[in-house]
Nucleic acid binder design. Structure first.
Lengths: 127, 127
DNA sequence: TATATGTATTATAATTCGTAATACAAACAA
DNA sequence: TTGTTTGTATTACGAATTATAATACATATA
């Protein structure tokens, strides 16, 4: 797994690791059910402390992105069969982003075009 | 100005203040050119230290949302006349959000419907 | 002349972040 | 069995961040 970390960023390392894994899952580079490197392996690969990776994995587990099993290790959570909608936390983040765009002078059309562009970088679930 | 702060949140107070002001500007509750409360006034209103408010104002200024003038105080930045597009930082945040949605099992259609819903809470610039 | 403004400085306490060194039970391979 | 690896928990440490507090300053305004 290839993760790009920015040591000079003000975003905590465990958050950067979490974001990169979410991006990889969203883009389909990590598929549902696929296993992730072990905590110690990933820590060694990217040159950080294993507890930092553990914190990222625990966060991803609590957010519902990963299943962690002592036998199978950490793996990407299988997609739900039924259709799921956005939760409150997601809408809050999205609304803040829409406000930032609007306050910066982006029209609704430009904002929605950007959303569409972002969505098209993601992998689509097969029906 | 009404700001909702959550003291038990893990989001820093100055960030919460910044977010609330961006939301107010995006929704049109604060209009371009409109004056904001003074640092000391807002600090007194919401019961935080004035340096905490100052930090939020300085952040908003550095992000281009506010103009701060010693004569006029802090005011909402007037909208640019020309059409503006999304910058790299905005697209990065949007892409992460799209990845979170996709990893959670939201289809592209559901994600874009949520984006449209968020956009419609915002005020539209008059042409 | 007073007052109010944004801003800068310094200090202090609490919390967070990253690392480090262990330790443990569970699972697996030999 | 024995040995290794797994996720996880604990404790400690230093550095950075966060929030508050008490001032101070030059500028602008009444």
């Amino acid at each position: 797994m290839i993760l790009k970390l920015d040591l000079s960023s003000d975003i905590p390392l465990y958050q950067q690791i979490r974001n990169q894994i979410v991006l990889a899952v969203g883009k389909g580079e990590l598929k549902p059910g696929e296993s992730l490197p072990t905590v110690r392996q990933l820590a060694s690969d990217i040159g950080v402390n294993s507890m930092t990776v553990n914190k990222a994995y625990a966060l991803l587990k609590s957010e519902g992105y990963l299943l962690i099993d002592r036998r199978k290790g950490a793996q990407v959570c299988p997609l739900k069969e039924e259709h799921v909608g956005p939760d409150a936390d997601f809408m809050e983040k999205l609304t803040l982003l829409a406000a930032e765009a609007t306050a910066k002078g982006l029209t609704k059309e430009v904002f929605l075009a950007a959303c569409k562009q972002a969505a098209e970088k993601m992998s689509q679930k097969e029906e």
